[in-house]
Structure formats: C-alpha cells, structure tokens
Nucleic acid binder design. Structure first.
Lengths: 196, 196, 196, 196
DNA sequence: GATGAATGAGCTTTCATTCAT
DNA sequence: AATGAATGAAAGCTCATTCAT
C-alpha cells in the first residue's frame, strides 16, 4: 500500500537518462536501467515499446523542455540579454536534472535517433538560428554561420557541464557568470579597436 | 604482384577509427570493422588482442601524435602565439586524418579506456594546464581553472569539427583564422575598458 | 498448468553431465547442451556464469555426493568390509545417475578444473588414503603407496563402468559381487602360501 | 646445412602425442602442436590432411606398435607367463615413449576416431580376448567376459601410468613386478581354499 | 499492472585450414 | 618443401524482448 511517490514511468526515465549520460546509449543495457530504477525489466516494456523508443522519448522530452524554457519571451530581448537568457536556460536545466542535457552530447546523426527526434533538433537549431541572425543583423554578433556559433557555445557548455558532473569543478553564481561572459566573448563582434 | 599498398594493420586502424568516430565504441561491431577494412574478422585478432585493445591503441596513437605535434617548441612562444599554435595543431590533425580527433569526444571515464590511456589524457591535460597557467600569470588569460579553459576551447572545437565532418561547413583559411580568434576571445582576459 | 516437472537447472545439469561424460569437456558445446536439455542457450547462462563454472559445479556436486556416501560410518568397519562399502558406493552412484562418476575420468590437472575442485579431489583422496593406511597397518592390504592402490581400484572400476555405459555388459548382483572380489584381490595382501 | 636429425614428420607426431595425452584431442590446437614441434602450422598440413587424420595416424601407430610387441611369440607361453608378457609390453611401451599409451585413455567411441582406428581396437581386443579365453579354459583365469578382464587390467594400468606421468610415483623393477602381481591377482582364479 | 525467467539473434572471439610467398 | 598471414565457420556469451505467472 501507499508508496508510488514517484511513478514507475518517471523512475525509468530518470534511471535511463542518468545511465545514457554516463555510459552512452549502446553501453547501457535494459537490465541496468531496471536495476537503477528498481523495477522489473518487463515493466520497462509496459511504458516503452523498445529501448530505441525509450531513448527517443527521453531525447524529445529533454529537448522539448529546454526549447520551451528558451522560447518564453526571449524574442523581444536585446541580443546580449537574449544570449544570457539562453545560457541561463542551459544552467537551470543542469540544476533541475543532473542529466537533462543528454541531447547536447548526442550527435544529430546518432544511429538510434528517429525522425521526430531529428526534426526537433532542427527546430531548436532553427530557433537559435533566428536569434543569432538577429544578432548578426544588428552587428553585435560575428557574422559566422549560425550552426558555427551554436557549435561554439554548446560545445563549450557541454564540456563544462561534463567537468561539473565528474565533480572536477563546482558551479557557483560567480563562475556561471564568468563562463557566460566567456561564451559571449567567443561569438560577439568585437569593436574594431586594436585587438590582439 | 603489386597489391598490399596499405598494410592490413593500417586498414584496420583506419576502418575502426572512422567507425568509432561515427558510431561510438559500443555501437561499432567487429564485423563492421572487418567489412570496412576489407579483411576477415579473424584478421583483426592477429593484430589486436581484443576490441578493447584496439580502441586503446587507437586512442593512444591519436593522443600521442597530437601531443607531439603540440609539444614541438611551443613553450618559448608568447602566449597568444602559443594558443594559435595549439589551435593549428587541432586543425592540422583534422586535415591529416579525418578521424584523428577521436580522443576529443571520448570522456576520460569511458568504460573501455585502460589505465595507460587515462594516463595519457592526464599528461596532455597537464601540458595544456602549464600553458594556460603561464597565460594566467602573465595576465593575458582569464584566471579560471585550467580544466575550465581547456573545456571551453576543446569543447567548441569538437563541435566545429563534427559540423565539418557532417559536411555542414567547409573549412578554409579565413574561417579557421576567425574560429581561432573566437576561441581566443573566449578565454583571453579582456582589458577593463567598457565592454558588454 | 502442470509442466516443469524438472527444473531447468536440473535439466541443464543432467544434459551437460551426460555430454561431458560421452564426449569430454572440450568437445561438448553449449548449443549441444542447450539442445539436449531442451532450453535456450541463454538459459544456461542464467544458472551458470560460464561453461567452466558449469563443469566445476557438476564436478564438485558429483564428488561431494560420492564423498558423503562413502564417509557414512565406514571408519569403524573392518577393512574388508570397508572396502566392500566403498565399492558399493561406486556401484550405487552409477545406479543413481548414469553419469555421476564423471569425476573418475577427469584427470586432476585438467585445464578446466578450478582450485575448489582440485581441493575436493585431494580431500577424497585423503579419505581413501586413510582407509588404505589402516588396511596396511593391519597387514591385510599390500604395502603399496595409497595413491597406487586407489589408482588400481578406481582405474579398473572406471573402465568397467564405461563398458556398462556402452551397453557391452549388464551389471547384476552376481557380477558386481565378483568384480568387487577382483578389485579386492588386486590389493589384498595374499598369505605367503604357495601362490602363482 | 646439416640439421634434420629428426624428421619434421616425427617432430609433429611426438609433439601432438604429448599434447593429446596432456590435454586431450579437443583442447589441443594446431598452433600448439606447431609450436611444440617447432614447425610452421602449414607444415603440419603437408604431412597430415587434417587434425583428425593426425590423431588417427597417431592412434593407429600406437596401437599397431603395441599389438606387434604383444603378438611376438606369446601364444605358446603358459597363461601366467603370457600375462606377464602383456604387462611388460605395457611397461616397455611407457618407457619407449612417455605418451605412447594414448590409446588406453581413448574411449572406443571417441568422436574423432575413424573406422580404421575402431577396427584396430577391435583387433587388439580380439587378440587379448583369445588370450583370456585360453586362460579361462585352462581354469587359471576367472570366468568373466574377456572385455571385463581387459577393462580391469588396462583400467588399472592406465591410472598407474598417469600417476607416473604426473610424477607422483617412480617406476622401478620391484614396483613394476608387484603391480603386475596385483593385476594378475585381480583376474586369476583363486583356489577354493578359504579366502576372505 | 508488475515481474523476472526464458529465449535466440547477434555479438566477440577462436582455430582448423588455405595459399601466396 | 616450409612458412605463417589470412580467413570464416562456429564457438562462448550477452541482452533486447516476450510472456506465463
């Protein structure tokens, strides 16, 4: 009786997300997930058709929640503030669920992603693309292809986030603020005064 | 007559490196490697004790060649030039072998890395650490932990390199030069004149 | 309803014991065992870690059950009676399970035996050793090293048992009785009256 | 030049005989044989069509040489002397080649024996059968089926021989003599005086 | 709904055999 | 004649998936 504070579904999602992040999709087995989620292996198949379905649901859920977070009223912000908003979304995401950024390390041509997942990557990319285009038009962001700009920021963030997960660094407000500045510096269009 | 322009060993190395880079270690099977290298599956085991040995040899070879490239007389360079040197090594590496940067996407706690491989990551990290420390001492680089600085630059580069491999961007001298500047901007200590 | 009269574990034990006895460890494949036990190959690995574990469990079970049978109150018997007891244990064992004497044909330095199995051989040998020593002290058994006496009796029995398994002879009470006498004659100390 | 004191053929025979005896047919690999014989693996196939051919040639050679040894003028001997002759053949065989008694531990239905080999076992058995029949007719040997009598003697001898090979006992003239007596005692018809 | 025993396709690996040298 | 690199069939073993309970 009682129990079920967290639904089995959520336990499976949580367990598989953490394992996929730690070991990758292919090195994670269904029994491993079942054990960490403390459910039977068969139970996983009551909620997900297959391991592939599971990873795609997970992927889509992550990217969906992130996209919605970003979308919220950032379009009217000035570019600099919009960038900070995006960066904060990344950070918040990290805080909410240690493993939520699984989608950052998944290559878009990963063999296990289905069409829907790929579509959602494209949508997120498009949204960020629009943002960077705005910045480029306004002359605040370097005029590089948007996918290049995205690669720089997300690539940097992914590795930082991995450091944190490995316990190599501890994130505090000051560090986050400085890292955001680093990323911004990477893509901002520096005034034409004598730089090195 | 003729034939054997490339040794079987090299064919296997090349095939597995490309597959590991495309699909990851766990999603790459020995039959896949054999097929791409155009050798029998048994042949792979004449050269490597196991799949794990193979990936570690590959990993160590990559990181070794990269380390040696970087090491060559960069210690006397000024920091800005030293950074450019490191960046160019990354780029050159990419050019020499489409897949040579396999080690960039391998997490240091990957389940298939052996102790030697982990040691070599540490050594490379230490070398870069020394470089960044010098920069920090001289006040040209942000005073952030070295692993943070490394994460930013390598993280950004990794994602850019993936874009290139997917055929999404084409690297030319101008682009490389600008990307190098982006990465430098991310970690350089900006003068305290009006920023933002 | 019904079914499962015998557990899968027992089916596997029985099937592998018969195959190991017929063909030896190395010529017996897991698929062969699976087929004879009428289970899937994977099922075997639910019960045993490896083929080597399986053969050792089997070996230890056989030798254990035999040892316990022998041990039961034979130490107080007169030597001649004790010998008959041991011989009867061998025969009974044969009756209970057609293949239970697998351990008789396994050389003690077989490459697949683990330390525990080797220890158990030693223990059984020690027990028999003690028995023969008693007989030698009393002057009823030839004063040969115990391992020699054991070799004679078990060696003879093993070959007889193989004949029976091949269907070449049929064991009945009279034959058993005579064979026991043969073995006893082989090791007993004959009085010094005119022999030959 | 020089060299070739022993032909490659003989080296291969010797090496495989020792390995088959130590490890059994199935646990012995062609590379193992090649290594011990100090020849290339390919060389083995210049002399033998297959691993199975090799083991059968070996088996037949062993049994042939043993049969011939036994055959030599034993038919006219008295039974007791004939038995001693057979036993001495076994011992001599052991001395000539440490592994020559490989055929003793091979079950007649071993999966690798071909028809010729099985025929030769039958022939040897027949020869011994005749001998034991003679003994039975003369009333010196127990009236048991000949295969039973053979099993007792060869079974006992095989185990003794294994003890010797493991270095557990050392064969000297006295011991051999006593062991021969043991075996004879096992099968001889004891006079009807009060026995135990 | 929940479970985990059972399964077999497909993995990693071995090895008898071939064949260019 | 002799070799050993190369091979692929088949071994031992794993694991996504099913299904009786």
């Amino acid at each position: 009786m009682a129990s079920a504070l967290i639904s089995k579904y959520d336990l499976i999602m949580k367990a598989s997300l953490s394992l996929f992040t730690e070991r990758g999709f292919d090195a994670t087995t269904i029994p491993m997930i079942a054990k960490r989620a403390e459910v039977g292996t068969g139970t996983i198949y009551r909620y997900f058709d297959s391991k592939e379905t599971l990873v795609n649901v997970l992927f889509q859920e992550s990217i969906q929640r992130f996209s919605e977070k970003v979308k919220r009223n950032y379009s009217e912000m000035p570019v600099r503030e919009g960038f900070r908003h995006i960066f904060c979304c990344l950070v918040q995401f990290t805080k909410e669920s240690d493993y939520a950024l699984f989608f950052l390390e998944t290559k878009k041509d990963a063999h296990y992603l289905n069409e829907t997942s790929k579509k959602m990557i494209e949508n997120l990319t498009q949204m960020l693309d629009d943002f960077f285009n705005k910045g480029k038009t306004e002359g605040v962001i370097r005029s590089l292809p948007s996918n290049v700009l995205i690669a720089i920021v997300l690539g940097a963030f992914l590795k930082l986030y991995q450091l944190m997960q490995q316990g190599d660094i501890e994130m505090n407000a000051d560090l986050i603020s400085e890292l955001e500045q680093c990323c911004w510096d990477a893509i901002k269009l520096h005034s034409l005064t004598s730089e090195e």
